[in-house]
Amino acid sequence: MESPLLQLPGAVPADAPDQEVAAHYGEPSQEQRALEAGTAFVDRSDRGVLRVSGPDRLKWLHSLLSQHLERLAPGEATQALLLSPNGHVEHHLHLVDDGEAVWAHVEPGTAPELAAFLDRMRFMLRVEVEDLSDAYAVVTTPREAAPGVPVFPDVAGAARIIERSALPGLAEELRPAGLWAYEALRIAAHVPRFGLDTDHRSIPHEMGWIDVAVHLEKGCYRGQETVARVHNLGRPPRRLVFLHLDGSVDRLPAHGDPVEIPGGRTVGFVGSAARHHELGPIALALVKRNVPVDAELLAGGVAAAQEVVVSPDTGANAKIELRRQPAKRA
């Protein structure tokens, strides 16, 4: 559903998958500074909004998702993943319980599929799943402007869920900043985004989601075997990196562009890129784990220096002690 804020003077639509909200309102750099200073908000109303109600909601979601949710306190925000049986990330959810229901926001276009999956998994439990994306919207506001509604910590203040009809009024209270401003702060904070910085093979360890969206000591859930195996015995095949891009080039690498090392060998792909008002052009990329951390890279043909987000040593936390048989006396 196209945001009404695209009708504001100077509004320019963002690229897919965010074409239903504004990339900027005519002043990208000023919007980014205002957002960082806490005097602006971001319309992220293209994101999906789900509500899961019923007395069994926390126990049920706990059994399906990667996070420990059985004792999630009202008002406590968290993140969780829905994994495939092979441990690949299928959905990334931001969750908060308001005491009566769990609210979740997810990537644009993914809510119908996720709601349909959850609905199939209800069985006889007392839960109800609603896709409320048409009636509610996600916005990122200064933290102090978000009382009394489902609130989620965010890279630029606080994300909150409001009625979609309230969007025009919010633009009268705060300066709107486009998604370009938000994405620049997100990338600078090393926060990956599902669907942009991931692909169909991505696993939690590669993205740095183990610490924020996975509980390593909870019971069975779909994909748990892969998470446990990598954490205890293996290493993920790839790792997320932050890229400082050559500022003398007048373009940003596109999503999916190859990341190469000198000689032309492809070692990964570009996820998301943006222009930061202080750092200049920056990006996130997913590269092979064994790429040296000091290697100079080319991202879509643009020279790039990498900064470690996910360590090459992630995983393999099991401590295995070898017991030797005592030598036999002659």
Rank of each mutant, 00 (worst) to 15 (best):
H190G: 08
P74V: 01
A73F: 05
E217T: 15
L69Y: 01
R238Q: 12
A145F: 04
D294W: 06
P85A: 06
D154P: 03
V227S: 02
H205D: 10
A104D: 01
A111P: 07
I210T: 13
P168W: 08
L240S: 03
D134C: 10
H68S: 15
R57Y: 00
P253Q: 05
F242H: 15
S133L: 04
E70W: 02
F194G: 10
G87V: 01
P147S: 09
E130N: 11
H244K: 13
A101M: 02
P292V: 06
R160K: 15
P237D: 14
A330W: 15
D313V: 14
L82M: 14
T110W: 12
A137Q: 04
L83D: 02
S53H: 06
V151G: 00
A34C: 11
P253M: 05
G148M: 03
W180T: 14
L8C: 15
E206L: 11
A73I: 08
A213C: 10
P150M: 00
A273N: 07
W180P: 09
A159G: 09
D15K: 15
R229N: 11
G195R: 05
T226M: 14
A305Y: 13
F269W: 15
G87K: 00
S3Y: 05
A115M: 04
K288H: 11
G26V: 10
L174G: 05
V129D: 01
E225G: 07
H62V: 02
E163P: 08
P153T: 03
V310A: 06
G157A: 10
P292M: 07
M121R: 04
Q32T: 08
G256H: 08
D131N: 11
F123R: 06
G301C: 03
R160W: 11
Q306M: 15
L69N: 01
A22G: 10
Y136K: 13
L81C: 08
Q79A: 10
I161P: 00
Q224K: 04
Q67K: 13
E2A: 15
G178H: 05
R143I: 15
Q67W: 09
L298G: 09
A111I: 09
H205Q: 15
Q224G: 03
S311F: 09
S45H: 07
A116P: 08
V151P: 00
P147M: 08
E90K: 13
E76V: 00
P147A: 06
A299C: 07
A34P: 06
A159F: 02
P312K: 03
P85F: 05
G75T: 00
A34Q: 12
V21G: 04
E307C: 10
A116M: 11
F194M: 14
E217C: 13
E2D: 12
G271T: 02
L69G: 01
D46L: 12
L64F: 05
G10E: 12
